[in-house]
Amino acid sequence: MSHDHPHPSTADKTEKPLSTREKLARMIHHWIHHTEDHVQSYRQWAQRAQEEGLPSVARALERVADGSLELNRILEEAQKELDEMGNA
């Protein structure tokens, strides 16, 4: 199963290049939302694994989902710092 990974760093050729901070802000936003999509998928497959009598696989997928949410919390901290720097 594959899925698209559109990247927000691709700028229109007529626009001025983004600064590193602007790129970071866009990428972090993208990564957070992309990870949320993956978390939903992990939890759905964990439920399916549980229904198929695969509790250890279900637990592993739930752990991956939880770990992904922790990664998002770290990314949100970075995003908040970028936001605060932009408003300073």
Results as ranks from 00 to 15, higher is better:
residue 4 D to P: 01
residue 68 S to M: 08
residue 75 L to I: 03
residue 8 P to A: 12
residue 5 H to P: 00
residue 20 T to N: 03
residue 66 D to I: 03
residue 63 R to M: 09
residue 64 V to Y: 02
residue 76 E to D: 12
residue 4 D to Y: 03
residue 83 D to Y: 08
residue 45 W to F: 15
residue 64 V to K: 00
residue 78 A to G: 05
residue 64 V to W: 01
residue 88 A to W: 07
residue 15 E to S: 15
residue 21 R to C: 01
residue 25 A to Q: 11
residue 34 H to W: 05
residue 22 E to M: 03
residue 35 T to L: 11
residue 49 A to K: 05
residue 47 Q to W: 03
residue 10 T to H: 07
residue 20 T to V: 05
residue 7 H to S: 12
residue 53 G to Y: 13
residue 11 A to C: 06
residue 65 A to K: 01
residue 17 P to G: 06
residue 17 P to H: 08
residue 28 I to N: 00
residue 83 D to K: 15
residue 50 Q to F: 03
residue 67 G to D: 10
residue 48 R to V: 12
residue 32 I to R: 15
residue 80 K to S: 12
residue 63 R to C: 02
residue 58 A to N: 01
residue 85 M to E: 13
residue 75 L to N: 10
residue 45 W to H: 13
residue 45 W to Q: 11
residue 28 I to A: 00
residue 24 L to D: 10
residue 51 E to I: 04
residue 12 D to Y: 11
residue 84 E to H: 02
residue 19 S to N: 04
residue 78 A to D: 05
residue 58 A to Q: 01
residue 38 H to Q: 09
residue 29 H to Q: 15
residue 55 P to G: 11
residue 29 H to W: 10
residue 23 K to T: 07
residue 38 H to E: 14
residue 62 E to C: 01
residue 57 V to S: 05
residue 8 P to W: 02
residue 8 P to C: 12
residue 74 I to M: 05
residue 83 D to T: 10
residue 51 E to Y: 02
residue 20 T to G: 00
residue 38 H to V: 08
residue 69 L to R: 08
residue 25 A to Y: 08
residue 58 A to F: 01
residue 53 G to M: 13
residue 5 H to Y: 07
residue 60 A to M: 13
residue 88 A to L: 08
residue 46 A to N: 05
residue 28 I to K: 00
residue 41 S to I: 06
residue 13 K to Q: 11
residue 33 H to P: 07
residue 6 P to V: 04
residue 53 G to Q: 12
residue 13 K to E: 14
residue 60 A to W: 08
residue 77 E to C: 04
residue 51 E to F: 04
residue 26 R to F: 02
residue 66 D to Q: 10
residue 21 R to N: 06
residue 53 G to E: 15
residue 28 I to Q: 00
residue 84 E to R: 03
residue 9 S to W: 14
residue 4 D to Q: 09
residue 41 S to P: 00
residue 80 K to Q: 10
residue 40 Q to E: 14
residue 58 A to W: 00
residue 47 Q to V: 02
residue 78 A to E: 06
residue 22 E to H: 01
residue 86 G to C: 07
residue 45 W to K: 10
residue 72 N to W: 04
residue 80 K to D: 11
residue 19 S to E: 04
residue 78 A to R: 04
residue 45 W to R: 14
residue 36 E to T: 12
residue 3 H to Q: 02
residue 57 V to K: 03
residue 54 L to F: 03
residue 40 Q to N: 09
residue 77 E to Y: 08
residue 17 P to N: 09
residue 58 A to Y: 00
residue 16 K to L: 10
residue 69 L to T: 07
residue 82 L to M: 02
residue 43 R to I: 05
residue 63 R to N: 11
residue 43 R to P: 01
residue 6 P to W: 05
residue 14 T to Y: 13
residue 53 G to F: 13
residue 45 W to L: 10
residue 53 G to H: 14
residue 76 E to L: 11
residue 56 S to F: 02
residue 35 T to H: 15
residue 60 A to C: 10
residue 34 H to C: 05
residue 24 L to M: 14
residue 30 H to Y: 13
